[in-house]
Every structure is written in structure tokens, then in C-alpha cells.
Amino acid sequence: MNQATAARADSPMIEITGLNKWYGDFHVLRDIDLTVAQGERIVICGPSGSGKSTLIRCINHLEAHQEGRIVVNGVAMTQDVKRIEQIRRNVGMVFQHFNLFPHLTVLDNCCIAQTWVQKKPRRGAEATAMEFLERVQIADQVHKYPGQLSGGQQQRVAIARALCMQPEVMLFDEPTSALDPEMIKEVLDVMIELAREGMTMLCVTHEMGFAKTVADRVIFMDQGQIIEQAPPERFFNHPESERTQLFLSQILGH
């Protein structure tokens, strides 16, 4: 299957079938089936240790899986390094702890992969970087180092860094969990805007307000399995599974 046929608008962006993963003897992901359409925005929630981070980390092979099939934008995942890197170039990722490169300036954080992975000339890379840094409203800090920025600013830079690679999909792994409360909004605002522009997004998050605002589908995971998935309206107002009801009452009940 080549990319040109795969990138048709009607074919799914991500197709996961029969995914199983173990850490040693611990069965962390069990028979996961998940199809994500192009432009779809998905929020994944669940108690800690339910495998939600592991699931999205399998999509760009930060975690290796033992069983099942993952196809991203028409490219099937194998153990082949070249294939994995091809998939990663299509998939942007934002981490809980930002993981900016502390020895590089904000601008260089956004340029380094463009220069070395996409082999763009420096000037073009900088122009792209500035475009996205402006969109996350951090263009006035580009010559600072990450250590000189607040957590919210760092996370916005991390989002810009991922967008600079022009990915087809964005993965968010608890992007606001490590932030002080007053900085959560500035990051969520960027994510909401991104969702409005039609980016395919998978977000692991506990921000239920965000889920209600932008998600097309909310997925609830527990013990490595998808327990329930539904549009936010139905998910929050009429959850079917008891586990989901319990989880929602715990996080919304105060």
C-alpha cells in the first residue's frame, strides 16, 4: 500500500486492530481496536495505570507492542526502523513534561528536526518555526532557553515544535497535568484552536471541559481495555458502563 492511495480523505488516519501489549507478565493493553478518521478529535480518559498513555505511545512506536496491527496514514507499523521513522514524521507528540531540549533556544527547539529530519534550509525552517511560535503566542521569547520560561509557555513551545513538522496527527499525553492551575487555560486554548482547524487529535487528559468542548468521541479505558466510547454529550450525560459512571462521579463529583 503506498501513501498516495492511503491519504485519501475517506480512509482512516489511524487503524488499530487487535492490539496487545505486555510489560513482562503484566498485560497492559488488551485487544484494543480503534479507528480514527481524518480530522477526528478523540479524548482518552481513565484511571491511572489504565494504559491510556501506553496506547497513544504505541501509535508512534515509543512503546513496542507484541500483538496486533497499527496503520497510520496508510503506513503499516513494522519493526523496521525506516518504517517507524516514516510514521513518526507524520505524527506529532506533546508530552506531560514538555521534554523541550534544554540546551537549545526556543527557536532551535523548533528548527532542529526540520533541519536534520526534513533537510530544510535554515531560513525556511526558521520561517516555519516563527509562524507556529506566533500561533502559540510565544514569538517574543524565541531566543530564550526553555529553562527561562514558565511551564505553560514551555508546553506551548512544545506544541509549536511538533506542529513545525507538519504532522497529520497530533498525540497529546496529559499535556496539562504538570502545569500550575493558572497556566492550564493558555495551553488548552492552543489545543482548542488546533482542533477547530481540523487537526486529527488524540488527547489523553483529565480536562473534561476540554473534552466537552472539542471532542468528537470520548474513550474511557480501564485495566488496559476500552470500556466505553461515545460522543461527549452521551458519554457525560448517559454513561452506560458502571465503571464509567464510577469514574465520572469521582472526577466530577467535587
Binding site: 515509543l62 505524527v91 513534561h97 536534520w116 529530519v117
Partner: peptide, 26 residues
């Protein structure tokens, strides 16, 4: 931290790029 290499991986960098540009300088 392991996150440094993961971030570099997620950006599509190969092993030698991750080492030479991200991990070793630090």
C-alpha cells in the same frame, strides 16, 4: 531524562541524530 530521547524520536530523528544533537551535547 528518557523524555529527551523520546521527544527526539517523536520528531522522527534517527539514532545518530538523537545522540549527536540531543543526548550527547547535554
Amino acid at each position: 531524562p528518557r523524555g529527551q530521547e523520546e521527544a527526539a524520536k517523536a520528531l522522527g530523528m534517527g539514532y545518530w541524530q538523537r545522540m549527536a544533537l540531543i543526548v550527547l551535547p547535554q
